[in-house]
Computed example of a mutant assay.
Amino acid sequence: MSDTDEGRGGVNRVEAFSDGVIAIIITIMVLEMKAPEEHGLERLWALWPVFTAYVLSYAYVAIYWVNHHRMFAHATRITNDLLWANIALLFTLSLVPFATAYLGEQHFTHDAALVYMCVMMLPSFAYVWLQAVIRRTGRQDEAAQAYHHRTLRKGAVASAIYASGIALTFASPWAGLACAALVAVLWFLPKSPIDALFGE
C-alpha cells in the first residue's frame, strides 16, 4: 500500500478509531472485576488484588491515551508507516486487560507480575515507533520539535524503568510493580524530575 494524502481529515479518522479501541480496552478491564456473590464486606475486601491491578492498568492506559492525543496534534498526514505503527500500539495495549486480569486473579504472584511487566513494556516500543514516524512526517516547527525532544527523552527513561522492573520482579513482584507505578507518576506530573535533571 502507498501513502495517502488525506491531510488532517485522515489524521482525525485514525485518532477517532484509536479512541474507540482504547475505550473498549478500558471497558474490558472493568468487566473483569466481578462482584462477589456472597454477603459481607470481607468478600469485597478479598477483591483488593483485582481492584489494585485495575487501578494501575487504568492509569497506564489513560496515560497512553493522553499522550496519543497530544502527539497526534503534531501529525499532518497519513502514511503507511503511521497506520501500521498505530495499529501496533493498539495491539500491544489490547493485551493489557489480559495481563491485568491475570495479575489480579493470581494475587500478584511472581509469574503474574513478570507477565504484567513484560506486557507493560511492549506498548513503549510501539509508541516510540509511532512517534518517530510523526516526528518525521508531521509538523516541523520549533514547538513540535521541543515536544518530541521532551517526550522521547521521558519515554526512554520510562522504558529503562520498565526494564529494571522486569529484572526486579525476579527478586520481588512488588518491587517490579513499584517500577510500573513510578512510570505512571512520572507521566502524570506536568514537570517531572527527569525534566529538572536537564534544567527544564
Rank of each mutant, 00 (worst) to 15 (best):
A23P: 06
A156N: 13
E15L: 15
E6Y: 07
S124E: 14
L31H: 08
G155T: 10
Q131T: 09
S18Q: 03
Y116W: 05
N67G: 09
A144S: 14
A59I: 09
E15D: 03
Q140P: 10
K154Q: 07
A144Q: 07
S2D: 11
A85I: 02
H68S: 04
V119Y: 02
R8N: 12
I194K: 01
L31G: 07
L168G: 05
F51Q: 10
V183Q: 04
H148L: 12
V30E: 08
A53C: 13
F72K: 08
M117H: 01
A144V: 08
L47A: 13
D19M: 10
I161S: 01
Y127H: 04
L114G: 05
Y102K: 04
G20W: 04
F91L: 13
S164N: 05
A160L: 14
A167Y: 00
W84F: 09
L56M: 15
L89M: 14
H110N: 04
A16M: 14
K191W: 02
I134P: 10
D5C: 01
W48G: 04
V96H: 08
W48V: 08
A99Y: 04
S164P: 00
A184V: 15
A180R: 14
P173L: 02
T169D: 09
T52H: 04
L47I: 12
L197Y: 03
T92I: 03
M117I: 06
S172Y: 00
R43P: 07
R13P: 14
I87A: 08
A146M: 11
V55Y: 05
V96S: 05
L197E: 03
Y162G: 01
L152S: 13
Q131W: 12
A62R: 10
V119A: 09
V55T: 10
V128A: 13
L31E: 11
L93E: 03
A158E: 02
P123T: 03
E37K: 11
K34L: 13
I22V: 15
G7Y: 06
H74G: 05
K191I: 14
D5Q: 09
V115L: 14
A46V: 08
F108R: 02
V183Y: 03
V30A: 12
F198Y: 11
P190C: 03
A163M: 13
F72V: 01
P49D: 03
F188A: 12
H39K: 12
D81P: 00
A99G: 01
G155D: 14
Q106W: 00
W65H: 06
A73M: 15
A23L: 06
Q145K: 13
A144T: 04
A35S: 15
A196C: 13
P173R: 09
A112C: 08
P193C: 12
I166Y: 01
G20I: 09
E142S: 15
D81H: 06
M121E: 07
S57P: 05
N80T: 05
F188L: 15
A171Y: 11
L47N: 13
A88C: 11
F17W: 09
L168A: 13
D3L: 05
A112H: 00
I26H: 05
A35H: 08
H110F: 07
G10H: 00
A196V: 13
